[in-house]
């Protein structure tokens, strides 16, 4: 295992407060919400695990290996387990196989299998959307998720997928206050555009 302080990017002399801050920032970065259905979700999950382990190891060290801290440290790693996505499987065994293939990243086989299904219901469009999303075909993913929701408006899984598309996805942003500069008024935008091209000097 790597040195826990290196994992969190802090010096071994850092205060408990600093360590907690660094841990929180990293946990925000690799939070499962930023990698929903993302083809890189497994890598982010690994990172998260590493960060959690490092944080717990440091807490253990600092408390002198006391057992009283152990219980609190496991509860502080509150992000554990968030990556396991619970999916309700329908009765159709083909769809269950398609879901498996998508999770393993074998999108071509999943698509072939799906194309062999004669009747197209809500789940069929949802899975087609999932395949498109994994590939990065975001517009087609959105269209398919919309159809799935139209056909089965009561299904929460489809609704969640469509909601995520309508938000334009989610990712960690370091310039938190600027919100990716979405909240700027017209004048500020013009100022920024000036920065972009080097202004008039």
């Amino acid at each position: 295992m790597r040195d826990p302080y290196t994992v969190l990017g802090v010096s071994p002399n850092a205060s408990d407060q600093e360590i907690k801050k660094a841990y929180r920032e990293l946990a925000r970065k690799y939070h499962p919400d930023n990698y929903v259905d993302n083809p890189l979700a497994d890598l982010a999950e690994e990172k998260m695990k590493e960060i959690n382990e490092a944080y717990e190891a440091i807490q253990k060290q600092r408390s002198g290996g006391g057992s009283s801290y152990q219980s609190s440290s496991s509860s502080s790693g509150g992000y554990q387990g968030g990556y396991q996505q619970q999916r309700q499987y329908s009765g159709n065994p083909t769809y269950a196989r398609v879901r498996n293939l998508i999770n393993m990243g074998d999108l071509n086989t999943a698509e072939q299998l799906l194309n062999e299904v004669p009747q197209h219901g809500g789940e069929w469009y949802f899975l087609r959307g999932s395949i498109a999303y994994r590939r990065g075909w975001l517009d087609e993913a959105m269209q398919n998720y919309s159809l799935a929701v139209q056909m089965e408006p009561g299904n929460m899984e489809y609704r969640q997928a469509l909601n995520m598309m309508q938000r334009g996805g989610q990712a960690y942003r370091p310039y938190a206050s600027a919100g990716g500069m979405d909240g700027l008024d017209c004048c500020t935008t013009m100022l920024c555009l000036n920065c972009l091209c080097g202004g008039c000097n």
Binding site: K29, Y30, N34, Y35, N38, L40, L43, A44, K47, G136, L138, M165, G168, G169, Q170, A171, Y172, R173, G180
Partner: peptide, 13 residues
């Protein structure tokens, strides 16, 4: 924007 978000999630790794 969605493509930007996918880039960000990848870049952080």
């Amino acid at each position: 924007n969605h493509s930007l978000n996918r880039m960000y999630s990848a870049a952080q790794l």
